[in-house]
Structure formats: C-alpha cells, structure tokens
Design a protein around this nucleic acid. Structure first.
Length: 194
DNA sequence: CGGTTTTGACCAGCGC
DNA sequence: GCGCTGGTCAAAACCG
C-alpha cells in the first residue's frame, strides 16, 4: 500500500496521467495511512493512523480549520460547515447568511499543474497570490447544475508541489469512462514497474 | 461553431 | 475611509 500511496502523489507528465479521484475510491483503499495534524501556526500537534479519507472526514469534528499532511504528501484542509461559524459581534448575521461549504485541499508532488481527477472543469479565473510567484487558477465543474469549484496553485517555496483545493460536492457521476479503480491500479503498476 | 482559456475589471472582506 | 487581497465576471481570443 505504501508504494501505491507514493505513486498517487508523485505524478509524472503523461498522455494518460494517473487518476486519483477520492470520491470513487473503495473507501478502505484510500491512500491515507498516517496523518499529521497541524495547528494554525503549522506546529505539529498529533499524528494518527487513519485508514482512509472517509474515516478522517467522519472522525473530524473540530470547528477549526485544519491542515492534514498525510504520509506521501497528501494534505487536507477542512473549514467549518455552514452554521458552524463562531458569533463575532456585528458579523454574525452576514456570516450566518453566507453559504460556506466544505473545502478540502490536496497537496501533490507533480510536475504538471492540471491533475486529472476524472471530472471536467472550466477555468474562470487566474490571480497572482501574495508571497507566491505562481498564479492561482480557479476552475468550476462544467456539469449542468453542479457548482463544485477547485483552485490550483503551485507552492513558491517548493516548486514541485501543487495544491488543489476542492469546494463542494459533485451532484453527478464521474464524467470519464476510464476512471475506475482497475484503471487506477494499472496506472500505478505501470509507474511503479510492477 | 461551440466550448474553453485568457485577462483586465469589478466587488467584497478585512486590517490599519 | 483607504488600500490590499482574494474571488468572480465577462468579453475577446483561442482551439479542435
């Protein structure tokens, strides 16, 4: 499993890049075995054995935004769900009305920025970001009625790392026919030389 | 020709 | 109030 995990996060440019859509993984085979939790100051707080992303999402009940770095380079950032905001003076009403959805970020070591997750995306913006020489790209899912967004940004301090942030949940099946677990496995075997 | 990308403008939130 | 920053819009350009 450890080899698979590394393959999932270390992609190479290819006509048929590895697929790693977590929503469609068998939940017990997600590439998360060990996670390290950091607080807002990036201090290491805990290290846990977590069998899968699914388990992590179920077990995570803190209202704080978290950054989770998994063995192999995965990273998850969780934000409070709608209605979880702390009340802060005059901001309460606005915060309550504002729809905030779950946001998860995956940190991937890759030479390519666009990592194929099986869904079709349309780019709607690009911005330069403070303290980062690489721009951040904004994408929306092209499926009708699906409002999932993602952001892609390469780290300035580690140019080999791409951070993909997903916001929202897809309301439809995956849009590419060859995105199944057998395909993922065969891709990993090709790259790992098995 | 339809879908996607590019890119400058615009807007909202936040700190000072 | 003002400036900075992040996020979105939308028209034009691009591409298969």
């Amino acid at each position: 499993m450890e080899n698979y995990q590394m393959m999932m996060f270390n992609t190479q440019p290819s006509p048929t890049p590895p697929y790693y859509n977590y929503d469609h993984y068998p939940q017990n085979l997600l590439p998360f075995s060990t996670t390290t939790t950091y607080d807002n100051n990036n201090n290491n707080t805990t290290t846990n054995n977590i069998g899968s992303l699914h388990e992590f999402l179920l077990s995570s009940n803190s209202n704080d935004e978290k950054i989770i770095s998994s063995q192999g380079g995965g990273l998850i950032k969780r934000r409070p769900e709608e209605g979880e905001e702390e009340e802060q003076g005059g901001m309460v009403k606005k915060m309550k009305k504002k729809v905030r959805r779950e946001k998860y970020a995956f940190q991937t070591r890759s030479q390519v920025d666009i990592l194929d997750d099986g869904y079709r995306w349309r780019k709607y913006g690009q911005k330069s970001v403070k303290n980062n020489k690489f721009p951040r790209s904004y994408y929306r899912c092209t499926h009708q009625g699906c409002s999932v967004k993602k952001q892609i940004q390469r780290l300035s301090k580690d140019e080999g790392v791409v951070v993909t942030t997903y916001e929202g949940i897809h309301t439809h099946p995956i849009q590419k026919s060859n995105d199944n677990f057998e395909h993922i496995l065969s891709q990993m075997q090709i790259y790992s030389g098995c």
